[in-house]
Design a protein around this nucleic acid. Structure first.
Lengths: 336, 336
DNA sequence: TTTATTTACGAAACCGTTTTCGGAACTTTA
DNA sequence: TAAAGTTCCGAAAACGGTTTCGTAAATAAA
């Protein structure tokens, strides 16, 4: 059962190709009777239009690209759900591309998108990304792009983020209120907007509560799990080791807990922990984990909704459409 | 900077369109000198070929479709990583489509794929799927399809699975060896191959150890988290409540743990638990969770590799290419 | 030198749609 | 009854590549 095309359908019905096409698109030029005939035959012969022919002619791919660092991460997988929920409604497909935190990969992906494979892009940049030429190139080639979560500050387009500064502040202040006075911050990137804003919030909270920051307590983690474990373990073994930790990203949770177990540090007695995390299992960890929970699904949904608005109106201006959706501090046993 | 096309590139170089195309594909018909000129100009003018034009003519989309029930699940997100790792190497894109466990969605997605949007498909069927006409239709329209994890037994194509029966057996036997004599099984679907095989393994283990199965201990969970929580709680409240539980799917972990907390049942003292799960946090749960860990990444990688082999050779026969990759029982504190 | 072969390129068909434009047949208006 | 307007459909161009085929020029063989 090879797939049938519009020409064969036309021959079958003794109609022209253009009539078929119009009938399938419910054009006013075609009589109801003919439309019904076409629809019926189309269903009977199992006609499925070739998307490439449509896209080539119509300049619409009906695809959006979602470029993220990683899929095995609660935040991103929930965001994908949010994105997919609107894409599906609009009859669009979602092309998910992973950068694995590599700038090179990110550049190649965006470059390829210039060919028109997608009509628009949602991007959460890699941890290595510090330049934004590749993003500007894509945008100026006419493909709308919206950032979500991890953004290039300097690019003039919509950015859907959460309140990273405030969240960093809240997390840190919470630890202080729970009695911590030596608080470490686990970062994931030197250049990433989210890391830096969360870190700034951390600094501000320390400042506001008359605690002084210590460089040794700012740990730059990497994309390598083993290495992160070693870094964290090392941090906790220092003579003036921290009694509170803010982990700025979900994937640091497991190495952090494991390091505490290995060093026989009791959470929250010896060290209190807050993680930026959307883990469903946060509440059943040992001990349950205090989190900054991000509105992942909403962020994805909002970004996608905005992108489709842009695609609908040709002259939409994304520059003034940024949005900040707040995260929430969920207090659990790792800090109490 | 609007995207340039091959015609403009040809005009720029005073060459014909066909020469450009051949040069870019490193055809033997074109001299090295011309090739270099073309490559250089192509880079300078930032030429990116239109994928739809190529696909339309060449019958190759350079896309594969990955159809899965859910992305916010460790198994699937790891499998995606495996798939993506080979796709990237082959220069392919991955179109991820979510069924959200709905048969209707699955049918629509596969139907659309018949149009040629993808060159091949990797499918893990929805919990509702019990018929396979939609799959056979797609395959007979000429698009190769490979199942991974959740398969339609009756469809004649390659299936990359894990040893579900043995895993169900191992999980159950482990509980028995730990002293459980009333063991419940949490299923996710009546029709799903994985559920049923795991359940059969469970039955066989009970039989081999002279324990008799009890219908009340087989719980059919749904896609609704709240409802699952209620079902599990109800199970644990029965007068003859189980002292061992096999949860056949990852997403039941959290409701199960929460139900135990709510009922003040101590794990593993009052009830021992084994979950089919790839959660990274299994080791830091309260208590750490004994799991059947599936080779998610490998399964994705294997399925994708096989698919690309099929795409390379036109006469590849997938019927004899199924593969079973074993899961492993990882014993932790929820059973000891 | 003549003929055969190879090299390097261009013209044009083609992929399957969508869309513009033209026009026959029919209906309405003057 | 003639003119004007509607309704419904078909022919053909267009989208941007790839590929087949033809051929002029250069080279090799006779």
């Amino acid at each position: 059962m090879k797939n049938i095309n519009i020409k064969e359908l036309a021959r079958e019905l003794k109609l022209s190709v253009s009539t078929i096409s119009k009938a399938l698109h419910d054009s006013y030029e075609i009589s109801d009777k003919t439309k019904k005939r076409v629809l019926k035959a189309s269903a009977r012969l199992n006609y499925v239009p070739n998307p490439y022919a449509s896209s080539l002619r119509g300049k619409r791919s009906k695809n959006i690209g979602v470029v993220i660092p990683e899929v095995a991460d609660s935040f991103f997988s929930l965001a994908i759900n949010g994105i997919e929920s609107v894409a599906k409604e609009k009859g669009y497909h979602v092309l998910i591309c992973l950068t694995h935190e590599s700038f090179e990969n990110e550049k190649n992906i965006l470059k390829e998108f210039q060919g028109g494979r997608v009509d628009g892009v949602l991007l959460s940049i890699s941890g290595e990304t510090s330049k934004s030429d590749h993003v500007n190139d894509l945008i100026s080639s006419g493909i709308p792009l919206i950032f979500f979560d991890r953004v290039c500050e300097e690019v003039e387009t919509a950015k859907i983020t959460t309140d990273d500064f405030e969240s960093g502040y809240k997390a840190t202040e919470h630890l202080i209120q729970q009695g911590c006075d030596k608080i470490a911050f686990l970062s994931i990137s030197k250049s990433l907007s989210i890391s830096n804003k969360r870190l700034e919030g951390y600094f501000k909270a320390l400042l506001d509560h008359n605690l002084k920051a210590d460089k040794k307590n700012i740990i730059l983690c990497s994309n390598n799990a083993k290495q992160n474990y070693a870094l964290i373990k090392n941090l906790l073994q220092q003579k003036n080791n921290p009694n509170g930790i803010v982990a700025s990203v979900e994937k640091l949770t497991t190495p952090l807990y494991k390091a505490c177990v290995a060093l026989k540090l009791k959470i929250p007695r010896d060290v209190k922990i807050v993680c930026f995390s959307n883990l469903e299992t946060a509440s059943i960890l040992n001990p349950s984990l205090t989190t900054i929970t991000q509105p992942a699904f909403e962020m994805g949904k909002t970004a996608a909704t905005l992108l489709f608005e842009t695609l609908a109106k040709s002259n939409f201006n994304l520059k003034k459409e940024s949005m900040v959706i707040p995260s929430t501090l969920v207090v659990r046993n790792s800090t109490t």
